[in-house]
């Protein structure tokens, strides 16, 4: 997550100035490191941890993706690109990819819209603001398993609180977990809700860092609150939005697993596969339930490629639209 750092400082120009002032000094300071090896030595602990827990498994995964392997049986048969071909020509996998893209799109757009709105409201100096903020942030503190169980009980079609309420008021009892589109919407909503806390914390911080002068100037110029939000606040929040879009995409791609596993187990079936079976859940099913370790490694490689593409896109096109200046 260290790839994109949001800049909270209200006056980046000042910082840049300081940085420029310090630049020549930094060159002189170079002598602080005696010899070429000291920096590497200091980096060693980080590199070791990355190597053992990230790079080595990643290389193993890359290798495993061209084998047929079952981790329990312990076999490894070289199959070349067969795993990739099977996956990429499988209608099930096509559907899973499509579902994942729709899911990620919805989660990111809805999640950011809601959290920016809620953060804006929660940043207002009203009585009890601190309590509101606490309540808004708290879903993030729940583990996905607990959140999933909570939603499962709430949306049990016969005895869940939601249907008891809907049944008593309108005489309807929607089948939340086996009507494909309802189930999809439910998982999207639950994921958005689960991520709200994280997004709100960041947006609150960013909103509090917006310089008052700018807001006052806008007010004096006669901008309505609505205009102030859209024309002043939103552009000033764009570095934060840029950062959050990226982290939210990654969260929706990978962290959605826990919730899906408890709430729907990837179901209900729609077309070729369960409609809430997303890439990471499919990977889990194949790798850890069905023990198709080779095929799961292949999926991991494809997901890695997807994330790499996203990062490249973000850096290439994202930066242009981000407004850092005040």
């Amino acid at each position: 997550m260290s790839i994109v750092r949001p800049r909270l400082n209200p006056k980046p120009s000042q910082v840049d100035q300081e940085a420029r002032d310090q630049a020549p000094k930094a060159v002189q300071d170079h002598a602080t490191f005696q010899g070429r090896w000291l920096p590497w030595l200091l980096l060693l602990p980080t590199l070791l941890i990355l190597g053992v827990f990230s790079y080595y498994p990643a290389i193993k995964t890359l290798r495993l993706s061209v084998f047929r392997s079952n981790i329990i049986v312990g076999n490894e048969q070289f199959v070349g690109f067969e795993n990739f071909l099977t996956l990429l020509s499988s209608p099930i996998y096509h559907q899973v990819i499509l579902q994942t893209l729709v899911f990620v799109g919805l989660v990111v757009v809805l999640g950011l819209l809601f959290s920016i709105g809620l953060a804006w409201l929660a940043s207002k100096p009203i009585p009890g603001a601190k309590l509101y903020r606490l309540l808004l942030i708290y879903p993030y503190a729940l583990s996905p398993a607990i959140a999933g169980t909570l939603w499962l009980f709430l949306f049990n079609p016969e005895i869940g609180a939601v249907n008891s309420f809907l049944g008593a008021l309108f005489g309807i009892k929607p089948r939340w977990l086996d009507q494909p589109f309802l189930a999809f919407a439910l998982v999207v909503t639950a994921t958005v809700w689960k991520g709200l806390g994280y997004n709100i914390v960041f947006y609150l911080a960013a909103i509090q860092n917006i310089p008052l002068e700018v807001m006052e100037a806008a007010e004096i110029d006669g901008a309505t609150p609505w205009q102030r939000f859209w024309k002043v606040v939103l552009p000033l929040l764009s570095p934060m939005t840029f950062f959050l879009i990226f982290t939210n995409i990654v969260a929706a791609l990978f962290d959605s697993f826990g919730l899906v596993n408890i709430l729907t187990r990837g179901g209900p079936v729609y077309g070729e596969a369960g409609i809430t079976t997303f890439l990471v859940y499919q990977l889990y099913e194949d790798g850890f339930r069905n023990f198709k370790t080779g095929a799961a490694a292949t999926q991991a490689v494809l997901m890695l490629a997807l994330v790499v593409c996203l990062i490249v896109l973000q850096f290439r096109y994202g930066n242009r639209r981000v407004h850092y200046g005040a």
Binding site: E158, L177, G267
Partner: peptide, 21 residues
């Protein structure tokens, strides 16, 4: 009736236990 989730016997037990089946 059931919860709609596959193999959710916890769910069907809850429905039965709450006298909804």
């Amino acid at each position: 009736t059931n919860t709609g989730k596959l193999a959710d016997t916890v769910g069907t037990n809850a429905i039965f236990g709450n006298q909804k089946a």
